[in-house]
Amino acid sequence: MPAVTFVLASGAIQEVPLTEGSSLMEIAKMHAVPGIDGDCGGCCACGTCHVIVDEAWRNRLPPITSAEAQMLAIHAGADPGSRLACQIPATAALDGLRVRVPDHQF
């Protein structure tokens, strides 16, 4: 079964099965991945589903829209691999994706 891996702030690993049709934020919430809040419900307006994508995967994800870039621009913990999980649609193509959950969401 296709799955994505969340590396938690504690260092623990959580594998979550991919459910097509939702977003990476939604599947994280569905499986209670700690550290993913998604306070705005997934419309790219709060920045509380911030994840850092493994380098190998950065070019394989849909590009960052201007709305997402703007939310990341005010994020003090942003890193070159930073993405908002609500902006990444869950598709089978993401099988094997690895993202890190920061120790704090803004």
Partner: peptide, 10 residues
């Protein structure tokens, strides 16, 4: 929500 979201929320 958006870019003006409260900075001190946490």
């Amino acid at each position: 929500f958006g870019v003006h979201r409260c900075m001190g929320n946490r």
